[in-house]
Simulated scan of single mutants.
Amino acid sequence: MAKNITSIALAMCLTLPLIGCVSTTEPRYIIDSQTYQATGKSERIKTIILHYTVGDNARSLKQLTTGNVSSHYLILNEDDDKIYNLVPESERAWHAGDGGFAGRTILNDTSIGIEIVNNGIDPKYRNALKNAALKAEVQGYHPYKHYVEFEEIQIKKVAQLVQDLALRYDISPKNIIGHADMAPSRKIDPGAKFPWQRLYEQYGIGAWYNQQDKQLFMNQDKFEAATIPEIKQAFREYGYQINDSDEWDKASHDVIYAFQLHFSPQHLTATMDLETYAVLKALNKKYAGTDDFY
């Protein structure tokens, strides 16, 4: 009887090798990551995307820890020493959604998301664009005064965090962006009162234009001579996704507004004008050829 059982077991190992009858005499191979290293590589993280939460601390925490959205980091509006890491940097957070920037789409795969607790639009203005007169006055877009200020402690935390991330991942200044920059028809965060210029000047974070270059391009004749396709191509050169139609349609105005939120927040016309043109040209002059598309 014992002999029969042994024969059956041996037959099973011969005919079904995948069920666990692996020889213990097979050598174990090691992974060698030291002897050779490729030079054709780069960091997976290419972009830092900043958001506001449109809610208070409790609502923001609940949404970002139990809902279908998440971010790598959360900055509350409390005066403490905490920056909350909600998703490991090695993992994919669900913060960006549809859109793109600098030739890349599906930015959740290659970005770090930072959420900042802030109401975004002041509640008293939340429904202002339903007012026909105001909507016509501001072209259907919120003006600067509708946005809520960030707390000073939040700006300092953002500065520390983004400086560290940009250094560790060697992120291009152009690729430190707002949610609106990569999804202009869906999002307007981190809004007009996020201090992009201050972060650049005080902490060396992100991109900003040279004032001298802006003045150089403040030439009415050059602006009037520029065609719509030429101006849209200038937006693409900087990184924005914009259609190739020969008109300033709604989607194109959304891109202009997102650009102004970032670089001309007190000049939110949502229309292509001389100042916006000059800033765009100045940015392209300063940052031409600084993207790594690999």
Score class of each variant (00 low, 15 high):
residue 92 R to D: 04
residue 232 K to W: 12
residue 75 I to F: 07
residue 24 T to W: 10
residue 218 M to I: 03
residue 127 N to Y: 15
residue 293 F to W: 07
residue 163 Q to F: 02
residue 156 K to E: 15
residue 291 D to W: 05
residue 30 I to W: 06
residue 222 K to H: 15
residue 232 K to S: 07
residue 286 K to W: 00
residue 77 N to Y: 12
residue 258 A to E: 02
residue 204 G to D: 00
residue 167 L to P: 01
residue 68 N to I: 13
residue 69 V to K: 14
residue 66 T to F: 05
residue 233 Q to I: 00
residue 218 M to F: 04
residue 214 K to V: 02
residue 33 S to R: 11
residue 132 A to L: 03
residue 258 A to G: 06
residue 43 E to N: 14
residue 277 Y to G: 00
residue 154 Q to H: 11
residue 153 I to E: 14
residue 211 Q to C: 01
residue 214 K to D: 00
residue 172 S to V: 04
residue 202 Q to E: 14
residue 220 Q to K: 11
residue 156 K to M: 12
residue 185 S to Y: 11
residue 120 G to V: 06
residue 220 Q to L: 10
residue 294 Y to M: 12
residue 160 Q to S: 11
residue 39 T to M: 03
residue 43 E to L: 04
residue 63 Q to S: 12
residue 190 P to E: 07
residue 154 Q to G: 04
residue 16 L to Q: 12
residue 173 P to G: 00
residue 161 L to S: 06
residue 140 G to R: 11
residue 69 V to E: 14
residue 176 I to P: 05
residue 252 S to K: 01
residue 104 R to W: 14
residue 141 Y to H: 14
residue 193 K to D: 01
residue 192 A to S: 15
residue 178 G to I: 01
residue 123 P to R: 12
residue 119 N to Y: 11
residue 89 E to K: 11
residue 119 N to P: 09
residue 56 D to P: 01
residue 170 D to S: 11
residue 22 V to T: 13
residue 39 T to A: 01
residue 196 W to P: 00
residue 126 R to G: 11
residue 103 G to Y: 02
residue 131 N to K: 08
residue 263 F to D: 01
residue 75 I to T: 10
